[in-house]
């Protein structure tokens, strides 16, 4: 289900050279994912749909002018984010980006236990989730793009129009949060692989 960078490149090139099947495939592969990202940013279904509509029409009409990419998701995320930003700013003039995405919402999920014997760790798990959810929303967006969407640090910086340094700093803050809550005593025990693994498994729930 995942495309390699070469497959991204060739699919994007096919589309740019006018292949309508490639265009349809890009929609099939990325529309739902773009929708999820867009909705997490603005919490407004209609706005997301309108921007996606404009974005795909724009892609179609401008295909010969687009630059190459080996990560279509990155390319489209950046385009959608800018488009959402524009249309919000058109609606309320003079707002800065800080307040533009005031509907943005990223929530670290709480996960069901699949490990009966690990019930004791549930409390610890809740503390990590709570701590991560307290991070500013822009930092959560960074974590979302890095760890859930697999964008590179450079790509995240470009999508959000921030510095690479901010991306690195956020990763450090998040990993420190994790470290603080993961009991070091587990690390000392041989059962680490299983018990910490299970602790962390508690956070994971497949999306579908």
């Amino acid at each position: 289900m995942y495309l390699t960078p070469e497959e991204h490149l060739s699919l994007w090139n096919d589309f740019r050279s006018g292949n309508t099947k490639a265009y349809a495939k890009i929609y099939e592969l990325f529309a739902a994912d773009l929708y999820r990202y867009g909705y997490n940013l603005v919490r407004n279904k209609q706005l997301v749909e309108d921007c996606l509509h404009e974005l795909f029409l724009h892609l179609h009409h401008q295909k010969h002018k687009l630059s190459p990419t080996n990560n279509i998701r990155f390319y489209l995320y950046r385009a959608l984010r800018n488009r959402l930003l524009d249309s919000i700013q058109k609606q309320n003039k003079f707002t800065s980006e800080e307040t533009t995405f005031n509907q943005a919402e990223f929530t670290v999920q709480s996960f069901e236990s699949q490990w009966i014997e690990e019930q004791v760790l549930v409390h610890q798990k809740q503390m990590v989730v709570t701590a991560l959810n307290k991070l500013p929303k822009r930092q959560k967006e960074i974590l979302y793009l890095v760890y859930m969407k697999g964008l590179s640090h450079q790509e995240v910086a470009e999508v959000m129009n921030i510095s690479m340094k901010s991306v690195y700093n956020t990763l450090n803050i998040a990993l420190k949060t994790l470290r603080d809550y993961v009991n070091i005593s587990f690390l000392k025990e041989g059962v680490l692989g299983v018990s910490l693994g299970s602790l962390v498994n508690l956070f994971f729930l497949p999306l579908n």
């Binding site: 529309a31 739902a32 929708y35 999820r36 909705y39 997490n40 990223f106 929530t107 670290v108 999920q109 996960f111 990590v128 991560l132 959560k140 974590l143 979302y144 890095v146 760890y147 859930m148 998040a174 990993l175 994790l178 910490l196 693994g197 962390v200 498994n201 956070f203 994971f204 729930l205 999306l207 579908n208």
Partner: peptide, 14 residues
């Protein structure tokens, strides 16, 4: 891998 799994954000399925 387990650490990275922690960052699961809720998403709204279209």
């Amino acid at each position: 891998l387990e650490y990275i799994k922690v960052f699961r954000f809720s998403e709204n399925e279209p």
